[in-house]
């Protein structure tokens, strides 16, 4: 009854909630604002007076950023993070959707077993396969960015196949049968008819996997390691901040800001897909 009116005017109670939510927004954004503000301060001022805004004395411009970038090769890390994320996600979406289609459409003991293995892999903690997988990757010379993408295809396969299969089940067979009668072979049928229908799920899978690969720390750290030039952003951040005895607080803050910026841009530009994708992924996973 009040609902129609409230679209234009909010009641006192609603204003109270509105004010409360505004306070919460400040609380939620504060940690990010904190490192952003401090990234423009000289390193000694950060520890003495972390909560003030930079002023004439403490403001150092972009010195921290230049310092951090030259010290850590952060630009390279951004490049490798992009490279590994994009290639891995492309491989995952392309190959797992085909696999999911096949094991859903062809019913048998083998395909059921494969499906079960994929679902099972989602429950297993990474630590269980970590050591053996890294040794295997070393032996097969997968300890490079291309090899990493291949490993991500293997690790991401569980969730991706699971989600694609769920969707393939809902596609009516008649559509494909019509294409087959028209003389399409299974590959033409898959790429011409099925894959376009799978597109919404493909976007969901791509978003979930991209978030995971981009932020993943342990796999690139263990497989590629610290000594090469192929470090990704989380590895560089951990290296700069974690094991550095003489910490340059300014550079640290600046690098944290640079690590967050691409994510925020990505989020704001495809927010709708991300939120929908995450909900869909949660409900099916």
């Amino acid at each position: 009854m009040a609902s129609k009116k409230s679209k234009q005017k909010m009641s006192a109670g609603q204003w109270a909630i509105f004010a409360f939510l505004c306070v919460l927004v400040v609380v939620f954004l504060y940690p990010i604002a904190f490192i952003f503000i401090n990234s423009f301060k000289g390193k000694f001022f950060i520890s003495n007076d972390p909560f003030s805004l930079p002023d004439g004395e403490t403001f150092v411009g972009i010195d921290n950023y230049i310092n951090g970038l030259t010290k850590t090769g952060f630009l390279g890390a951004i490049g490798w993070s992009f490279f590994i994320t994009i290639i891995s996600v492309a491989l995952i979406v392309f190959f797992t959707s085909m696999t999911a289609y096949y094991i859903t459409r062809v019913k048998g003991k083998l395909t059921n077993g494969i499906y079960f293995m994929f679902a099972f892999s989602m429950v297993v903690p990474f630590q269980m396969v970590m050591f053996t997988m890294v040794s295997l990757a070393d032996k097969l010379k997968l300890n490079n960015p291309i090899g990493m993408c291949f490993l991500y295809l293997g690790f991401g396969a569980g969730l991706a196949v699971f989600m694609f299969s769920g969707f393939v089940k809902s596609i009516p067979l008649e559509i494909e049968e019509a294409a087959m009668i028209d003389g399409c072979n299974p590959l033409q049928n898959y790429f011409g008819v099925v894959f376009p229908i799978l597109k919404p799920t493909a976007i969901t899978v791509a978003i979930l996997q991209a978030m995971w690969v981009w932020n993943d720390y342990l796999l690139p750290y263990l497989v590629i390691g610290l000594s090469t030039n192929y470090k990704t952003i989380p590895v560089v951040v951990q290296m700069l901040v974690g094991s550095n005895g003489n910490k340059d607080m300014g550079a640290m803050m600046a690098m944290l800001v640079l690590a967050i910026v691409p994510i925020v841009i990505f989020y704001l530009s495809c927010q709708k897909y991300i939120i929908e994708g995450v909900v869909a992924g949660a409900v099916k996973g």
């Binding site: 190959f95 293995m117 994929f118 892999s121 297993v124 269980m128 396969v129 970590m130 053996t132 997988m133 295997l136 990757a137 097969l140 997968l142 291949f150 490993l151 991500y152 295809l153 293997g154 690790f155 396969a157 569980g158």
Partner: peptide, 11 residues
């Protein structure tokens, strides 16, 4: 292949 190398064999 990728799944076996990254998960099944290591497991």
């Amino acid at each position: 292949i990728a799944f076996s190398l990254a998960f099944v064999i290591p497991f």
